[in-house]
């Protein structure tokens, strides 16, 4: 996914937790749009409400990127 970025933090043999692997961060779509252009395609009103925006170009679904471990 284009808006998900990651890096691998340095892991020392003296770090007590097992390495988390990749550490994730987001660069959502608005960062690539200085000024929203006219006439972008739109969601229907019902869908827009569900998604939290009227414009698919600005929609960024978020999910926990990490494994569950307890």
């Amino acid at each position: 996914m284009k808006y998900v970025k990651s890096y691998v933090p340095y892991h020392s043999p003296f770090d007590p937790c097992p390495p988390i692997g990749k550490k994730y961060y987001r660069t959502p779509p608005h960062l690539y749009m200085t000024f929203q252009p006219y006439n972008l395609p739109q969601f229907s009103p019902q869908e827009a409400l569900k998604k939290g925006t009227l414009w698919p170009a600005l929609y960024d679904y978020y999910e926990n990127p990490y494994d569950r471990r307890s």
Binding site: P29, H30, K50, K51, G52, T53, L58, Y62
Partner: peptide
């Protein structure tokens, strides 16, 4: 929903 609003 709230997170997406912050983007807008």
């Amino acid at each position: 929903f709230l997170r997406e609003r912050e983007i807008i």
